[in-house]
Design a binder for these strands. Structure first.
Lengths: 350, 350
DNA sequence: TTGAAAGCGCTAACAC
DNA sequence: GTGTTAGCGCTTTCAA
C-alpha cells in the first residue's frame, strides 16, 4: 500500500503505468468506445494498483455534463423531507444521476443562497420544495436552462414542472370529514412559522370549508420550536383549559397531534366521543401509538418518485421534455381511532 | 428578464457587458485583490443584470480547491444522523466549506461506492460514520490526502481522526446502572442488523458488564424493518409472553424503547417497579411520552460540531494539522421514570 | 482500435 | 488597479 501522495493521481499517471495513451485510459474507465480486452485489462490493473480515483471536476468541465441533481428542502429534522429524499435516491439509483441536498431552514434568503451555490455546480436538474421563492431565486431557476421540479405543493404557478398535493384542498377535505362526522366545536393547533406556506394553505382551506358550512374555528393555538410531541401536549392542555367544550382538535402536523392524543389518554378524555383529533402527514410513528391518530397521507413517497422520474426523463431526452406539467396527487384521509362519527349523530354507523 | 439562454453565461459575457477584463471580473466576484470601487460597481451591475452564476467546476479545476466536505452516513431515516448533519452544517456555515451528504444504508459496498463518487469530486475533507470500512474504502481515505474524521464511535483504530463515544463503554455503563438499581432478570431487545456495529458494541459491553456481576441476559429479541415504535410494542409483548418474570428490558434504541414503554402503560405493567426500561440515544421524542424513558445521551450534537471543527481547522492550517486525534466523549445516563431503584432493594432512596 | 490536438471556464502568477 | 498568459485534468473530435 502506497503512502498518501502529495499530488493526487491523474489519468496521465495511469497512462504511464500502463503504457496506454491517456485517451484510451479514459475510454476504459468510462466504458466508452471500443477497446481491446488486452488494453482494457492493462488499464484496469494499473488504475487499481495505483488507487486512481478519476477527477470529476475535470471530467465535468470537459464534457459539459454534471450528473448531479440539486434537491432543495427546508429541513432535515422534519422526517417528511428525509422520506422524500429516500424516494428520490431510489429512483436516481437506476440512472447516472446523483442527488445533492441543500437545506434552507424555511428561510427565503437562505434558499436563495443555497440555490446559487448549487447552481454554480451546474447540476442537470433541480428539485425544490414549494412554489414560493424570491424573485431572484425564480430568475436563477428560469435562467439555469435545466429541468426544475417544484414539489410538495400545487397551489400556485410552477416555474417549470410541479408534483404535489393541494394543501388548500387537503385542509378542506379534512374539515368536511370532521363536519360530516358530527363535530361542531373545532379547535386548530399549528405552527407559528409564517414561512411554512403549506401549513398556511391547509389552514386556509380548512377555515374556508368550515365557513361554507356556516362554522368557524372555535379556538386556536400556535407554537414554535421545541419537541413537537411535548408541544402538542402543552398546547392541547392550554386550549382545553381555555375552551373546555371543544369537541375536535385539528393539528397542523402529526407530531403535535400525537402529543395531543397522548395528553388526552393520560387525562381520561374520551377520544373520539368527547373529543375527536386529527393531524396531517401520515407519519409512520402514529402506528405505534396506543390509538391511531386520524391523519392524511401527504403522498411523500410518490412525490419524490415522480419528481425524480421527471428529472431523469428530461435529462435523457434533452432539456426540452414534456414541459410545465403540474401533477396533483390526491391525499387520502385515514380516520384511525380519533375521527369517528359522534354517537349522538350516528343514525347509522359508518 | 431574459429568456432561458441556450448556453450558460460565462465570465466572458460579464466581461463584455461591463467592459472589464475577465480577470478583473473574476476578482470582483470573489472579493480578491484590490479593485477600484468604480469597476467593482460596473461588474456587479453587469453580473446581476445578466443573471450570471459562476461556474464552480471551472473555478475548482483552475484553483485546485474544492470547498466541499463529504459527509457519509448510514441513513437519513434514523433521526440521529440528520441531527449530526445539522451540527456539522452549523459549524461549516461560518467557513467557506459546504457539506455534501452521502448515504450508505448501512452497507459496506454502498459505502465504498458513495465514497468513490464523493472523492472523485476532490472534497477538502471527509466526515464518515463509524470505524468499520472495507479495505478498499480505507485505502481510498488514506490515499485521498485530505483530513478524514470518523465519527460516532471510538472503539477501534481511526484512519486519521475520530470523534465519538465508546459504545462498548456505553453498554457497560447502562448495565452497571441497571444492576445497581436492583434489577436482576434482564432482557435485551435490539436490531437484527448485523451491520450496525455501534449497536453490536453496546450489546457486547452490556453483556460483559453483566458477566462481571455474575449475571447474563435472561432473554432477547431482535427485529428488522418496520415502524420502530410498533416493533417495540410487538417485541415487548413477545418477550414478556415468553419470559414473564423479566424485571428489566434494555432496548438498543429509544424508538423501540418508547414502543415498549407504551406497551407497558397500555397493559397496566408497573414501570419501573415491576419492570424497568431503558433505551439509547436521548432522542427528543421521549420528552413527550407519558413517562420519560431512561436513556443515554449519545452526544450527537457535540460529535457533529467537533468533527466539523477539526476539518475546518485542518483545511485552514494546511493538510498537516494536529493529526490522528481520537476524541472520546462521555455519554450520560438519564434515568427518566423508568430506571429507578427497585423498592425492595431500596435501603436508601436515591 | 488507438492516438493527437484543442479546448471546457476559470484562476495563479506574473507583467504592466 | 488591471490585463495577459498559461494551464487545471479531463473529454470531444477527428485523424490514423
Amino acid at each position: 500500500m502506497a503512502d498518501a501522495p502529495k499530488r493526487p493521481l491523474t489519468l496521465r499517471d495511469v497512462s504511464e503505468a500502463s503504457g496506454v495513451s491517456e485517451m484510451t485510459v479514459s475510454r476504459v474507465l468510462r466504458n466508452r468506445g471500443d477497446v481491446s480486452d488486452a488494453t482494457r485489462e492493462k488499464v484496469l490493473e494499473a488504475a487499481k494498483a495505483l488507487g486512481y480515483v478519476p477527477n470529476k471536476i475535470a471530467g465535468a468541465l470537459a464534457s459539459q455534463r454534471v450528473n448531479l441533481v440539486a434537491v432543495i428542502i427546508p429541513s432535515l429534522s422534519n422526517m417528511v423531507f428525509p422520506e422524500v429524499m429516500t424516494a428520490i435516491s431510489d429512483v436516481l439509483d437506476d440512472t447516472p444521476l446523483q442527488p445533492v441536498v441543500g437545506v434552507t431552514n424555511y428561510k427565503k434568503e437562505r434558499e436563495e443562497k443555497v440555490l446559487y451555490e448549487m447552481l454554480s455546480w451546474r447540476p442537470s436538474g433541480v428539485i425544490i420544495a414549494g412554489l414560493e421563492h424570491s424573485e431572484a431565486s425564480k430568475a436563477m431557476l428560469r435562467g439555469a436552462g435545466i429541468p426544475v421540479v417544484e414539489i410538495m405543493d400545487t397551489d400556485g404557478t410552477p416555474i417549470d414542472a410541479a408534483v404535489g398535493i393541494s394543501h388548500r384542498r387537503a385542509g378542506r377535505m379534512m374539515a368536511e370529514a370532521i363536519i360530516k362526522a358530527g363535530y361542531r366545536k373545532i379547535g386548530f393547533l399549528g405552527t407559528k412559522m409564517p414561512l411554512d406556506h403549506r401549513a398556511r394553505k391547509r389552514f386556509e382551506g380548512f377555515t374556508e370549508a368550515l365557513a361554507k358550512a356556516g362554522m368557524e374555528i372555535a379556538d386556536q393555538e400556535f407554537y414554535e420550536g421545541g419537541s413537537a410531541l411535548g408541544k402538542g401536549r402543552e398546547m392541547t392542555e392550554a386550549i382545553l383549559k381555555r375552551t373546555p367544550d371543544l369537541d375536535f382538535l385539528y393539528f397542523s402536523n402529526d407530531m403535535i397531534g400525537a402529543g395531543g392524543l397522548l395528553y388526552c389518554l393520560d387525562n381520561g378524555i374520551d377520544v373520539p366521543n368527547q373529543l375527536g383529533l386529527a393531524g396531517f402527514n401520515g407519519v409512520e410513528l402514529l402506528k405505534g401509538l396506543p390509538r391511531t391518530l386520524a391523519t392524511m397521507d401527504s403522498c411523500r413517497e410518490e412525490i419524490g418518485r415522480k419528481a425524480a422520474e421527471i428529472i431523469a426523463s428530461r435529462v435523457e431526452g434533452g432539456i426540452e421534455g414534456p414541459q410545465g406539467q403540474k401533477i396533483e396527487l390526491t391525499p387520502t384521509i385515514e380516520r384511525g381511532h380519533t375521527l369517528r362519527r359522534k354517537p349522538k349523530d350516528a343514525a347509522y354507523p359508518e
